[in-house]
Amino acid sequence: MSLKLTGITQGYGRTNAIERFNLELTPGVVGLLGPNGAGKTTLLRTMATIMPPRTGTIALNGVVIDGERAARRARRDIGYLPQRFGFDPGMRVVDFVRYAAWMRGLPAERWDDAAERALIQVDLVEQRRTRMRRLSGGMLQRAGIAWAIAGDPSLVLLDEPTVGLDPRQRLQFRRLVAGLHGAVVVLSTHHIEDVDAICDRVVVLHRGRPTFAGTAAELAALSRDDLPGDTDLERAYMNLLPSQEQRL
């Protein structure tokens, strides 16, 4: 499994949110950090083939996604959880996750197993027949994570997946992501402790451009004692921001 972005420029209207972005990913967990407006969500939507890039190319497993037909094929291998995902409020949780398996092109005889496995991973088996509208905020977020991992996609894109999760559920989420062997997982988050705990690599974005790409240890080495933060990783992240944004 590999994902390669070459010279990606992306935006809305006349504004570019991402400019000349290059990134090559192999199996493992990549943390995507950056302040609000840095372009993280735009980058994930581009990786998910929801937004064709304005310039540049995306290649999944060496195959360039050069049109809608290629994008539809690629989506069978992509699990994407946006910050705000849509659902039918009257749909049962298990059917919501089975629908994800259908969307990924799994044969019908595998839908139930794929949904059951995903619900086990996010600890929602007891709520499998609950209507989506009756889920708490944390349960709804876990249902979204189950959607993203159902059918074992090889590229998993998660935009702020731990919002609404309590500390126990966040620890469970970390174990879940660490167990997605063989997949490329891109985790966009503001929780630097999650990045420290589970990410093999870190990419820091600022105004649509990467200011850092490397391991968490390499990022932590950029820490400065005079900057705000409770850990080396937090202080290193602050060090990558412009001076006017380093003040709390």
Results as ranks from 00 to 15, higher is better:
residue 3 L to N: 09
residue 3 L to M: 14
residue 4 K to D: 11
residue 6 T to R: 13
residue 7 G to K: 13
residue 9 T to Y: 03
residue 10 Q to R: 12
residue 12 Y to S: 10
residue 14 R to Y: 00
residue 14 R to L: 11
residue 18 I to E: 05
residue 19 E to Y: 01
residue 19 E to T: 15
residue 20 R to L: 00
residue 22 N to W: 07
residue 22 N to G: 11
residue 30 V to E: 00
residue 33 L to Q: 04
residue 34 G to N: 08
residue 34 G to P: 10
residue 35 P to Y: 04
residue 35 P to W: 04
residue 38 A to K: 03
residue 39 G to I: 04
residue 42 T to M: 09
residue 42 T to W: 03
residue 43 L to G: 09
residue 44 L to P: 12
residue 44 L to Q: 09
residue 45 R to A: 10
residue 49 T to Q: 12
residue 54 R to L: 13
residue 56 G to L: 09
residue 57 T to G: 06
residue 57 T to R: 11
residue 60 L to R: 11
residue 61 N to S: 14
residue 61 N to K: 11
residue 64 V to I: 14
residue 64 V to H: 04
residue 66 D to R: 12
residue 67 G to H: 03
residue 68 E to W: 02
residue 68 E to I: 07
residue 73 R to G: 05
residue 76 R to M: 11
residue 77 D to Q: 14
residue 80 Y to G: 08
residue 85 F to G: 02
residue 87 F to M: 03
residue 89 P to E: 04
residue 92 R to A: 14
residue 93 V to N: 08
residue 94 V to Q: 11
residue 94 V to F: 02
residue 95 D to C: 07
residue 97 V to A: 06
residue 98 R to E: 15
residue 98 R to K: 15
residue 102 W to Q: 15
residue 107 P to C: 09
residue 107 P to D: 12
residue 107 P to F: 08
residue 108 A to R: 15
residue 109 E to D: 15
residue 109 E to I: 05
residue 110 R to K: 14
residue 110 R to M: 07
residue 110 R to A: 13
residue 111 W to A: 05
residue 112 D to S: 13
residue 113 D to W: 01
residue 116 E to V: 01
residue 116 E to W: 03
residue 116 E to I: 00
residue 117 R to W: 01
residue 120 I to V: 14
residue 120 I to K: 15
residue 120 I to Y: 08
residue 120 I to M: 13
residue 123 D to S: 15
residue 124 L to Q: 06
residue 127 Q to E: 13
residue 129 R to V: 00
residue 129 R to W: 12
residue 129 R to I: 00
residue 131 R to N: 10
residue 132 M to A: 10
residue 132 M to H: 06
residue 134 R to C: 01
residue 137 G to S: 10
residue 137 G to T: 08
residue 140 L to V: 01
residue 142 R to C: 08
residue 142 R to D: 02
residue 142 R to I: 03
residue 144 G to H: 04
residue 144 G to E: 04
residue 151 G to W: 06
residue 151 G to S: 07
residue 153 P to K: 06
residue 155 L to G: 02
residue 155 L to Y: 03
residue 155 L to Q: 07
residue 160 E to G: 06
residue 163 V to C: 01
residue 165 L to P: 11
residue 165 L to W: 07
residue 170 R to C: 05
residue 174 R to A: 11
residue 176 L to R: 12
residue 176 L to I: 12
residue 177 V to F: 05
residue 178 A to K: 15
residue 178 A to G: 14
residue 178 A to V: 00
residue 183 A to H: 13
residue 186 V to W: 00
residue 186 V to Q: 02
residue 187 L to D: 02
residue 188 S to P: 03
residue 189 T to R: 02
residue 192 I to Y: 05
residue 193 E to C: 00
residue 193 E to S: 13
residue 194 D to M: 04
residue 196 D to V: 09
residue 197 A to I: 06
residue 201 R to F: 05
residue 201 R to W: 06
residue 202 V to K: 05
residue 202 V to Y: 01
residue 203 V to R: 07
residue 205 L to G: 06
residue 206 H to V: 11
residue 208 G to F: 04
residue 208 G to K: 04
residue 209 R to W: 00
residue 214 G to Y: 03
residue 215 T to Y: 03
residue 217 A to S: 14
residue 218 E to A: 12
residue 218 E to C: 01
residue 220 A to D: 11
residue 225 D to Q: 14
residue 227 L to E: 08
residue 230 D to R: 14
residue 231 T to G: 06
residue 233 L to E: 07
residue 234 E to M: 07
residue 235 R to P: 14
residue 236 A to N: 08
residue 237 Y to V: 04
residue 241 L to Q: 07
residue 242 P to V: 09
residue 244 Q to Y: 15
residue 244 Q to E: 15
residue 244 Q to K: 12
residue 248 L to A: 09
